[in-house]
């Protein structure tokens, strides 16, 4: 196996370790496990960034140089990278590790699917003509930051619903460590806003690219359509919150539904025929 792929499969274990530490911290209620969890995630992120740079350099050595964002394997790796990056920024900003147990596992799942699924080819492949465009980088980066923020919103929605099971007095450390529901609601709103803006940017950059590659900025290709469906779901959510004053449980459930739509936009579309079939 090539160095970068080996490194990336190691990063899978590092993220696994970090997720376990975050969960352990939640279950035992001991902050003792917190810093190791953060540092493990940080080490994983640095190792992953290095591996991505190495992979980029490697592709140039092969004479087919391009950013490592061009197939399912590379997109999954990048997806986990954006999740961890965004998560660590949030952890640093809100000075709380409580979200880790609900977010880092998503990053672990994404990267382990890339590393271990037999259906995902980890080789560096050259770019087919349709992908030979500078818009590739803009489009993939904006889309995946959007996906990552919406993944985090989903994690927050889950936390909100679990917190609802809290019976108050005498509940376990796990429940006590879950932030209170107002904070979760507010954080989830912020993640959705970030995700929604990046999703919009992803759709716009995709349209610009489609206009120069396929001759039309919008052709109702299944992936395009699903990105619109996801966009409509989150648009409905934001309107019901900002104008209708929806809060709490309904929003938490909506953020789970929205995430299913994100997943379908990302993976499900591979089951349908269309122009994005190389992804």
């Amino acid at each position: 196996m090539v160095l970068n792929t080996t490194m990336l499969s190691w990063v899978t274990f590092i993220y696994f370790g970090s997720a376990v530490l975050y969960i352990f911290r939640m279950v035992t209620g001991k902050e003792f496990w917190g810093p190791p969890a953060t540092y493990t995630a940080l080490i994983g992120l640095l190792a992953q960034s290095t591996a991505l740079v190495l992979r980029w350099i490697e592709s140039y050595k092969m004479g087919i140089g391009h950013a490592p964002l061009s197939n399912l394997y590379e997109s999954l790796i990048f997806f986990s990278w954006t999740i961890v990056l965004l998560y660590l920024i949030i952890e640093w900003r809100i000075k709380s590790r409580n979200l880790g147990a609900f977010v880092i596992p998503f990053a672990f799942i994404a990267i382990s699917y890339a590393s271990f699924s037999p259906n995902v080819n980890s080789r560096i492949q050259p770019l087919i003509p349709a992908l030979q465009s500078n818009w590739l980088i803009c489009h993939v980066i904006t889309c995946f930051f959007g996906y990552a923020a919406l993944t985090i919103a989903c994690g927050l929605g889950l936390m909100y619903l679990i917190k609802g099971l809290d019976r108050g007095e005498g509940s376990s450390a796990f429940f006590k460590l879950l932030p209170n529901r107002d904070i979760l609601d507010e954080l989830s709103y912020h993640s959705i806003v970030i995700g929604f803006i990046f999703l919009t940017l992803g759709i716009i950059t995709g349209s610009v690219w489609a206009y120069s590659a396929w001759g039309s900025y919008w052709s109702w290709d299944p992936k395009e359509t699903w990105s619109l469906i996801t966009w409509l779901i989150y648009a409905a959510m934001l309107h019901s919150r900002l104008i209708g004053g929806w809060r709490g449980k309904r929003m938490a459930i909506m953020s789970l539904i929205g995430f299913v739509s994100v997943l379908f936009t990302y993976f499900g579309v591979n089951l349908l025929p269309g122009l994005h079939s190389y992804f």
Partner: peptide, 24 residues
């Protein structure tokens, strides 16, 4: 009304799903 907005957004989303399932 906001109700109309939300209803329309959801109906359009649902219709679009239908369009990705039925070959066009």
């Amino acid at each position: 009304s906001l109700k109309l907005t939300i209803t329309l957004l959801i109906i359009i989303a649902g219709a679009s799903i239908l369009g990705t399932v039925i070959p066009q």
